[in-house]
Simulated assay, not measured.
Amino acid sequence: MESERKDAVVVVGGGVIGLTTAVVLAERGRRVRVWTRDPAERTTSAVAGALWWPYAIEPAALARGWALRSLDLYEELAARPELTGVRLVEGVMGEADPDGAEAWARARVPGLRASTDAEYTGTGMWARLPLIDMSTHLPWLRERFLAAGGSIETRTVSDLSEVEAPVVVNCTGLGARALVPDPSVRPVRGQLVVVENPGIRTWLVSETSGETSYFFPQPGRLLLGGTADEDDWSLEPDPAVAEAIVRRCAALRPEIAGARVLEHRVGLRPARDAVRLERELLADGRVLVHNYGHGGAGVTVAWGCAEEAAGLVSGDVPPGG
Rank of each mutant, 00 (worst) to 15 (best):
Met1His: 13
Arg5Phe: 08
Lys6Leu: 14
Lys6Tyr: 03
Asp7Gly: 14
Val10Gly: 00
Val11Cys: 05
Val12Cys: 02
Val16Pro: 00
Ile17Asn: 06
Gly18Trp: 12
Arg30Val: 00
Arg33Tyr: 00
Thr36Tyr: 01
Asp38Arg: 12
Asp38Phe: 00
Pro39Glu: 04
Ala40Ser: 11
Ala40Leu: 04
Thr43Glu: 05
Thr44Pro: 01
Ala48Lys: 08
Leu51Ala: 07
Ala56Asp: 15
Pro59Thr: 10
Ala60Leu: 08
Ala60Gln: 13
Arg64His: 09
Asp72Cys: 11
Leu73Ala: 11
Leu73Ile: 14
Gly91Lys: 04
Met93Asn: 04
Met93Tyr: 13
Asp99Ser: 15
Gly100Val: 04
Ala103Lys: 05
Ala103Arg: 04
Ala105Asp: 09
Ala107Lys: 13
Arg108Thr: 14
Pro110Met: 09
Pro110Leu: 09
Arg113Glu: 06
Asp117Pro: 15
Asp117Ser: 14
Asp117His: 14
Asp117Ile: 05
Ala118Val: 06
Glu119Pro: 07
Glu119Gln: 09
Ala127Ser: 13
Ala127His: 03
Leu129Arg: 14
Pro130Asn: 12
Leu131Ile: 05
Ile132Val: 15
Ser135Lys: 14
His137Thr: 04
Leu141Gln: 09
Glu143Ile: 03
Glu143Trp: 13
Gly149Ser: 01
Ser151Gly: 08
Thr154Pro: 00
Thr156Trp: 04
Ser158Asp: 13
Asp159Ala: 14
Asp159Gly: 05
Leu160Ile: 06
Glu162Cys: 01
Ala165Val: 02
Val169Met: 02
Cys171Met: 10
Gly173Ile: 02
Gly175Ser: 08
Gly175Pro: 05
Ala176Ile: 00
Ala176Asp: 06
Leu179Thr: 01
Asp182Thr: 03
Val188Leu: 03
Leu192Ala: 14
Val193Asp: 09
Pro198Glu: 15
Trp203Val: 02
Trp203Gly: 10
Leu204Ala: 05
Leu204Glu: 05
Gly210Leu: 11
Gly210Glu: 14
Thr212Ser: 10
Ser213Phe: 09
Tyr214Arg: 06
Tyr214Asn: 08
Phe216Met: 11
Phe216Ile: 13
Pro217Tyr: 08
Gln218Phe: 07
Leu223His: 12
Leu224Tyr: 15
Gly225Thr: 14
Thr227Val: 15
Glu230Ile: 12
Glu230Tyr: 07
Asp232Val: 13
Trp233His: 10
Pro237Cys: 11
Ala240Phe: 02
Ala242Arg: 11
Ile245Val: 15
Arg248Gln: 14
Cys249Arg: 10
Ala250Ile: 11
Arg253Thr: 12
Pro254Gly: 11
Pro254Ala: 11
Glu255Tyr: 15
Glu255Ile: 05
Arg265Glu: 11
Val266Asp: 10
Leu268His: 03
Arg269Leu: 06
Ala271Cys: 06
Arg272Ala: 06
Leu277Lys: 09
Glu278Leu: 03
Leu281Glu: 15
Ala283Leu: 03
Val287Asn: 00
Val287Tyr: 00
Leu288His: 00
Tyr292Lys: 03
His294Trp: 04
Gly295Ile: 00
Ala297Met: 02
Ala297Asn: 08
Thr300His: 07
Thr300Lys: 09
Thr300Val: 11
Val301Gly: 06
Ala306Gly: 08
Ala306Glu: 01
Glu307His: 13
Glu307Val: 08
Ala309Met: 03
Ala310Val: 03
Ser314Asn: 04
Asp316Arg: 13
Val317Asn: 01
